[in-house]
């Protein structure tokens, strides 16, 4: 009946209690929101001067360019990290022990390394003139390692009988992998893979530290170049840039959920009876 295991469908008294709590909670949240609004307004964060820069086409163009640069870095990093992830996963699933060991070491190392440390080191060593490639390389190495683990656990989660049946039909290991195991693994791991892509998208904002002109860098530039009587418009910029990031991430997450729901429906159709 109830939506959660933690409580029963409420009776009349519980309903009244929940309603009382609900009213209290709404009041509390409204109070918090009002306090936030009031403290922003009383320090003139909503004054016309604070929001004025967003009216200029140059500033709007800056935000659009920043968004495009963010998407460019994300697209490159997503594609490369999936390729690297597939390669590393193949390495970790290899029959040869040295290959397995090398792939495992690479995956463990890059998963434990802070992305910022790597991006900075890459920027200082190999890509001094091109922050884009420092960012993309760093994102690729880190997310590739994570995607490799996702793909590997997906392949391992395919029922053993699938691979055994394929070997029994005389398929080679490469055939078993590409024709039997990987398609099923990708299907079940797609939500997790997209979830990691959301992380990749969020992490493109680290490019800001190495002066890559992505969305966050554009925002910081706008804020620090506009002097108003009440200080720099950092809060308006955050209120504009934040929803853009949140919107993009929610879109990707919605895609993952949609695929998950679709996959479940398909799986149910195919295996009507659980053995």
């Amino acid at each position: 009946m109830s939506s959660s295991v933690l409580y029963d469908a409420p009776g009349p008294r519980a309903k009244a209690r929940y309603r009382a709590f609900g009213v209290l909670a709404v009041l509390g949240i409204a109070g918090l929101l009002w306090y936030a609004y009031d403290s922003l307004a009383s320090r003139n964060q909503f004054s016309a001067a604070m929001w004025d820069p967003f009216q200029y086409t140059a500033v709007q163009q800056l935000i659009v360019n920043g968004l495009l640069d963010t998407l460019k870095a994300f697209g490159l990093a997503a594609a490369f990290s999936l390729v690297l992830g597939a390669l590393l996963a193949a390495g970790r699933l290899s029959d040869h022990r040295p290959v397995r060991a090398v792939a495992a070491a690479i995956v463990q190392f890059f998963r434990a390394m802070p992305l910022l440390i790597m991006i900075f080191a890459l920027y200082q060593s190999f890509f001094t003139t091109s922050p884009l490639w420092a960012l993309v390389t760093g994102l690729t190495l880190y997310n590739g390692a994570v995607q490799a683990e996702i793909i590997r656990s997906g392949v391992n989660a395919v029922p053993r009988g699938q691979g055994e049946a394929a070997y029994a039909l005389g398929m080679r290991k490469s055939q078993v992998m590409t024709a039997i195991l990987v398609p099923q693994a990708v299907r079940s791991m797609l939500p997790a893979i997209i979830g990691q892509l959301v992380v990749t998208l969020k992490d493109t904002s680290l490019g800001f530290v190495i002066t890559y002109t992505e969305l966050l860098y554009a925002g910081k530039l706008i804020a620090s170049n506009t002097a108003t009587p009440d200080g720099y418009p950092y809060i308006p910029v955050v209120l504009v840039i934040g929803p853009i990031y949140i919107g993009m991430c929610l879109l990707l997450t919605a895609l993952a959920k949609w695929i998950e729901a679709r996959g479940r429906r398909g799986a149910n159709r195919r295996t009507p009876v659980a053995a």
């Binding site: 409420p10 709590f21 959301v198 904002s205 949140i246």
Partner: peptide
């Protein structure tokens, strides 16, 4: 069991999980 709290929790989590940490740092620091 209180819907208002559930909505609050969901909104909070969705906002903070989908904001880049760097942006949070900027929001807090500046």
């Amino acid at each position: 069991p209180v819907p208002a709290l559930r909505v609050f929790g969901t909104v909070w989590v969705n906002i903070f999980r989908n904001t880049p940490l760097t942006l949070l740092f900027i929001a807090v620091n500046f």
